[in-house]
C-alpha cells in the first residue's frame, strides 16, 4: 500500500495537533474496535472557526486526514466548514488508498460533530443545521459486528 507524498508529509508533521484548551466545540467519532478515533476541537468566534486542533488514534491516513481537514477549515465560516466533504480532503492529500477512504469520512464527521457540539453549547439544536451524524457509515464494519450500532 502506497501513500502519496502529501499524506506522508501530513503524517510526519501533522498540523494543528493537540488539545485546544479554550475550544467551544468538541467532537469525537470512531471507536477503538475499528482502529480509528478522531477528536476535533474548534474555537468559534462570530461564526468563524478561529482555531482548530485534533487528536487522533489511528493509522497514517487517519492522522494525515485529520491534519488536512483542520487546515481546510481553519479561519473559515461555520457554513463553509459544514460543506467540507471527505472527497475534498482526499483530493487535497493527492488521493488515499481505497481501504483508507473511510478515514477521510471520519475527518468530515469529526468536524460536523465538533460544530454540532458548538451549537448545542450555544443552546441551538444542531440537527437542522448539521444533520444526523451516522457514525457507522464511516467505520465500514458490517452492522452485526460493529459496536457502534
Amino acid at each position: 500500500m502506497l501513500y502519496s507524498a502529501k499524506v506522508m508529509e501530513h503524517f510526519a508533521n501533522p498540523h494543528n495537533v493537540g488539545e485546544l484548551k479554550d475550544a467551544n466545540g468538541v467532537g469525537e467519532v470512531g471507536n477503538q474496535k475499528c482502529g480509528d478515533i478522531m477528536k476535533m476541537y474548534i474555537k468559534v468566534e462570530n461564526g468563524i472557526i478561529e482555531d482548530v486542533s485534533f487528536m487522533t488514534f489511528g493509522c497514517g491516513a487517519a492522522i494525515a486526514t485529520s491534519s488536512m481537514a483542520t487546515d481546510l477549515i481553519k479561519g473559515k465560516p461555520l457554513e463553509d466548514a459544514l460543506k467540507l466533504t471527505n472527497k475534498a480532503v482526499v483530493e487535497a492529500l493527492d488521493g488515499l488508498p481505497a481501504v483508507k477512504v473511510h478515514c477521510s469520512v471520519l475527518a468530515e464527521q469529526a468536524i460536523k460533530a465538533a460544530i454540532a457540539d458548538y451549537y448545542k453549547r450555544q443552546g441551538i439544536d444542531p440537527t437542522p443545521i448539521v444533520g444526523n451524524l451516522e457514525e457507522c457509515e464511516a467505520c465500514g464494519h458490517d452492522h452485526d459486528s460493529c459496536s457502534c450500532n
Binding site: 501533522p14 493537540g18 478515533i37 485534533f54 487528536m55 487522533t56 488514534f57 492522522i63
Partner: peptide, 8 residues
C-alpha cells in the same frame, strides 16, 4: 500517545 485521544 501525545496525539492519541485514547491515551488522553
Amino acid at each position: 500517545r501525545a496525539m492519541s485521544p485514547v491515551w488522553q
